Computed example of a mutant assay.
Amino acid sequence: MTGGTPLRRTVAAALALGLSAAIAACGSGDGDGGGNGGGSGAEGKDGGGRPKLSVSGAYLPRPSMDDMAAGFFTVRNAGAGADKLTSVTTPLAYDITLHHTADNRMKQVSSLDVPANGRLELASGGDHLMLTKLTHRPKVGEKVEFTLHFANSDPIEIKVPVEPTTYRPKD
């Protein structure tokens, strides 16, 4: 990084380090710890059947910074219809964005696919949530309410446990 004051360079480096730590602290999200949510009964808009969604393995690594965090979970779809995760809301953050990662490149997206009879996995090094403008820095053991919004299915509310920054779920 070039240019800017030493303070700006330090802040930018701290932001990058914090984001890297939050993302690196995450694993596969297959465990059943935290955030189990109910399914949906909405008919798929494509007429291909009904999604039947559930959420497992949700966790939020304790943010290393006061204003940014990452979130992880798995959405399972036992139904014959596909769906899309279109947004997530929480009282913890003013802004939550969905990110897709491919070839070590992170890109903000407007939705993430939940395939029929498949799953959407938000995990370290892959798709994930970015929470910015946090209302506070959550502590380990705290449970954070999230509402997952989908293109076809009813919203799912989950309680997401805050884990240590270095937490890795067991496979």
Rank of each mutant, 00 (worst) to 15 (best):
E121A: 13
H100Y: 13
G41V: 05
S28N: 12
N36L: 06
T101W: 15
A12K: 13
T166S: 13
T166F: 15
G34V: 00
Y59V: 01
I23D: 15
V11S: 14
A14S: 14
L85F: 02
P155M: 09
P6I: 02
F150G: 00
L15H: 13
Y167G: 10
D113Y: 13
L131K: 01
S40M: 03
V109S: 02
S110E: 12
M106Q: 11
P169W: 06
S20P: 07
T5M: 12
D103I: 08
G48L: 05
L19H: 14
R62V: 01
E145D: 05
E145Q: 11
G33A: 11
A16T: 12
L134R: 09
Y94V: 01
G44F: 04
V11Y: 15
G27H: 06
G48D: 08
Y59P: 00
G37Y: 03
T74R: 01
R50T: 08
D171C: 08
A151W: 05
G141Q: 08
G48A: 12
G118D: 06
L148T: 00
T147K: 02
T10E: 14
D113M: 07
A24Q: 13
A16S: 13
S56M: 09
V11G: 08
I158K: 00
R8K: 12
T10D: 13
F146E: 02
G141I: 01
G118R: 12
R8I: 14
Y167N: 11
S124N: 10
A58N: 01
A42Q: 12
D30S: 10
G29M: 05
D95S: 14
L19I: 10
D127H: 15
P164W: 05
S56D: 08
R62M: 11
T2W: 15
S110V: 05
S64N: 06
A123H: 14
V88M: 03
K133R: 12
L131R: 01
D66C: 07
G79C: 08
D127I: 07
V160C: 03
K84V: 09
S54A: 10
K133Y: 07
L122W: 04
K52C: 10
P155N: 10
T86Y: 07
V109Y: 11
P6Q: 09
D171N: 11
E121G: 12
E157F: 00
G33F: 05
S111K: 03
M1C: 09
T166A: 14
N117M: 14
D103S: 14
V55I: 04
L53C: 03
G41S: 11
D113I: 03
H99Q: 11
E163L: 04
S87Y: 06
K139G: 03
K143G: 00
I96T: 15
A58Q: 01
F73M: 04
L60K: 07
R50D: 04
I96E: 09
G33P: 00
L7V: 13
Y94L: 06
T89C: 01
K45Q: 14
P6N: 11
A22G: 15
